[in-house]
Write a protein that binds this DNA or RNA. Sequence first.
DNA 1: TTGAAAGCGCTAACAA
DNA 2: TTGTTAGCGCTTTCAA
Lengths: 329, 329
Amino acid sequence: MSVTIKDVAKHCKVSSATVSRVLNNDPRISEKTRIKVMKSVKELNYRINGVARSLKTNRTNTVGFICPEISNIFFMSIAKGVEDELKKSGYSVIICNSNENKEDEKERIKLLCEKCVDGIIIIPSTNEGKHFKCLNDANIPTVLVDRLVEDFQSDAVLVDNINGSYSAVEYLINKGFKRIGFIGGNIMLTSARERYEGYLRALKDYCIPLDESIVKFGDFHVESGYAIMKDLMQQDNPPHFVFISNYYMHAGATKYLIENKYNLKSNVLVASFDDMELSSIFGFSILRVRQPMTEIGIKAAQLLLNRIDGNNANYPQIIRLKTELITER
Amino acid sequence: MSVTIKDVAKHCKVSSATVSRVLNNDPRISEKTRIKVMKSVKELNYRINGVARSLKTNRTNTVGFICPEISNIFFMSIAKGVEDELKKSGYSVIICNSNENKEDEKERIKLLCEKCVDGIIIIPSTNEGKHFKCLNDANIPTVLVDRLVEDFQSDAVLVDNINGSYSAVEYLINKGFKRIGFIGGNIMLTSARERYEGYLRALKDYCIPLDESIVKFGDFHVESGYAIMKDLMQQDNPPHFVFISNYYMHAGATKYLIENKYNLKSNVLVASFDDMELSSIFGFSILRVRQPMTEIGIKAAQLLLNRIDGNNANYPQIIRLKTELITER
DNA sequence: TTGAAAGCGCTAACAA
DNA sequence: TTGTTAGCGCTTTCAA
C-alpha cells in the first residue's frame, strides 16, 4: 500500500533503524548516510506513519480541547491561542463540542482518552467535575479554562473576574452612577459567580446598598440578555445603567434596547464583561472589561505542555490573568 | 502501565481475540462470554487503545479541518456543522489554522497526512491548490469548502454566491435604488469573485450602467471594510446604498459610518452578504444574504464520509447550497 | 463459538 | 556509526 520505513531502508540499502534515526534527527549518524536516506525518502515520497510511531512512543502529539460551543467567538478566541501555542511544539488539537451539557462532555472525554491524546484542555460546561476524574486515572494531564468545577482539582487558567467587574463598577460609581443594574450569567458557573461578587464588593466598598430588584441572572446567551433587559426596563423604576456579564448577553440586551428605541447614549447606559473585535464597532457600551482571550489559550497550552513533559511542580497550579478596562473614546 | 486487551483476556480466561470480538460487537460470540468479558472490562477499567487499533485497521476515525482563521465566526459555524455531523459517525476533528497563508496551509496538510487522518476538509486560504495534490497521492479524501482553487480538482461544498448577491441587488433595484456601491473581497478568491459577478449581472439585467468609482475591493476583514467605506464616502458623489461582500467588511464599514455620524436608516443604507447571530441585533443593514453555514459543514462532512467509505460516484462532486434573503422587519 | 499467531509501521535496547 | 530484533496493543486469518 503506502511506503514504509522498510521500503526506504531497502531502497538505500541500510537498516530500517538507520532510516528511523535519520528521520528523528539522531546525531550519531554519518552525514553520508543521512543524505543517502533523505534522498530515498524524497524519491519514494515517504511519509512518516504517525500512528505507528505513536504506538511505539506512547505519545500522539495531540491534545484535546473541549468547549461548550464551537461557534462561540469567546471560546474560539481561546482555542486560537491554544492552537497557536501548541503547534509551535508540534502538537495538533482535536476540538470537541460539549454542547453545554455534561453527558456530551463525558462522551468526548472518553473519546479523547481512546484517542490517547497527550493532554486535555477543558472549558467545563457545568460546575460538575466528577466525570473529569477518569482523566487522572488515565494519567492524562488536564487544564481547566475559564471556570472551575466541583469535585475535581487540576491546573487551571482563569481571569480575575472579581476584580474585573469590581473595577468596572468602581469606574461607573466614580462617574457618578449610583444605581447600577446587573445582568449575570448562570450563577452555578464560577465565572458568573465571580463577576457578581465583584459587583457586590464594589457596591459595598462605596457604601451603595444592593437593590435586588435590578439584579437578574440568566445564562450567558443572547436571548437571555434580551429577556432580562426587557424585564429590567419594564419595571416601575428601571435602572439608567446596567452592567452585563458577558458579550452575548450584552448583545441581546442591546438588541432589546435598540428595538425599543432607547437611546443608548443617554437613555440607558451599558457596560459589559468581554471586549470582542466587534464590540467597539457598535459603540453601545461605554465601558468593557477585556479578557485576554488568546493569552488564556496560550497560557493553558504552556501549562499543559509543561505537565506533559513531566514537570509536576506546584500542582495544581491556578493562573489568574488580569482583565483590562476599555473605555469608549 | 495501562490495561491492555491481554490483561482483560487473562482476567476472564479467554483469548485476546475473543475480547477484541466482544469490544467490536462481533455477532458470533456467545452471550455468556460477552457478559463475562464486559465484566472484566469494567472491573479492570479497560479502555481501548485507539492508536493500536488504528495501526491495525488503517483507520483513525479522525478528520482534519483546515481553515484560514480559527476565531472567525463564519468558519467556525461551518466547523460546528462538520463536528456535529462527524461525531454521529464516531469521528473527531482536528482543527487547524492556516493563518490565511499558503505555507502554513501546506504544513498543516503535511501534519494531517502524518497523523493519518481519514479525510480532510479545507477552506482554502488562497486560490492556489497545487499543494493539495499530495492529498490525492496519499489517497486522502478531500472536500473543499466555500472556495475553489486552481490546479486542484476535488469534491466541494459552496454556496450559490452569484445568485445570492444577484437577488440582493435585484431586490434593492426593485426598491428603487439605482446607484448601488459595492465593497468586495479579495478577487482572487472564488467566493469574492462570484459575489461581484452576481452584482454585475443584476445591474446588467436591469440596464444599470456600472459605475466603477463606487466599486472597491478589499480582503474580507473589518479594517478593509472600514477603509473602503471611508474611501467611498469621501468621494464627491458617494453612493447612498452600498452592498458589502461579507460580515466582517460589513462590520468595518458600519464602524466607519457610525463613527462619522451617518444615519444608517436614511443617510447611507447598507446590505451585505452573510447573516450572523449578531447581524440582526445591530439593525444597520436592511438586507442580508444568509449563507446556511452549519448546513455547509454538514454537507461537507457527509460528502467526505461517503468518500471515506469508498463511494466514488460522481467524482468530483460540487454541491452548491442556496442562500436566503433576510430583510430587516 | 473460540484460540493461536501473524503482523500493522515504527522505535530503541543491545550488539557489533 | 550501523544493524538486529523485540514489541507497542490491537485485529484478523486460519484452524479447531
